[in-house]
Write a protein that binds this DNA or RNA. Structure first.
Lengths: 118, 118
DNA sequence: TGAACATTTGAATAACTGTTCATATGTTTA
DNA sequence: TAAACATATGAACAGTTATTCAAATGTTCA
């Protein structure tokens, strides 16, 4: 018997509910990716970058100016946002212009805001 | 001049866009709370707990059984979920039954899933 | 009351993460 | 091509966090 089960013998577990939960839970990869996605939103620098991009694309320089952060820090975060397909980049001459890659970004942030502003 | 501005002189910054972003960005407290909220979703244990609670309330013991984790680890995470008002607890005898505190939880996770499953 | 059970909590540890600094890459223009 | 600029990247450090272990709290029942 595995360790986690020892704390609670058979009488107290609602085994029907538990097995139902086990059927409903997405597979491990999906759960990992899902948590990974929210982790990206879980940093105020990245959230600020995303909200900054709500209305128009911006170059890295604009973002670091708006956020009051070094260009390097912003660029590191943009890479994470790019990897997770939340923003996309477009080069124009020396500058890279970033914009939101996905409508879900707006929806997710809006839901989050409505939760905390209640 | 602050350090972050030095990387990029006035010519390259789109100062009209930047000042517009500065007007639109939520205040610092809101941004912090927002990131804090998403941070809670950014852990696969907590996401699994939340999804497990989609259909019915469960006691701590059920959750630890379903997730294959120690009851202590689950309890620690439940406290975080409670603090952030994502779940609520109800005592019935020796057991604590937890359930989702908020419909936003379902919406946010659904949006996240639809993002990664594209 | 005391024993048994379910849950919570605090401290410690190991793993992870964001920023900084230095440097590299890529682009334009003189 | 060389210089200047915008961005990207690697390594290192400091701060954060999830789990474990041990112990405490709260509840029921004999």
């Amino acid at each position: 018997m595995s360790k986690h089960a020892e704390c609670c013998d058979e009488k107290c577990v609602h085994s029907d509910l538990v097995s139902h939960v086990l059927e409903q839970l997405p597979d491990e990869d999906t759960l990992y990716d899902l948590a990974e996605l929210f982790k990206v939103f879980g940093d105020s620098t990245r959230v600020r970058i995303l909200i900054a991009l709500f209305e128009s694309e911006l170059c890295v320089c604009d973002i670091s100016e708006a956020l009051g952060m070094t260009q390097s820090a912003v660029s590191h975060q943009l890479q994470i946002l790019r990897t997770n397909k939340l923003v996309k980049g477009r080069r124009e001459g020396k500058q890279m212009y970033y914009s939101l890659a996905d409508e879900h970004v707006v929806t997710i942030i809006a839901q989050g805001l409505s939760h905390i502003l209640e």
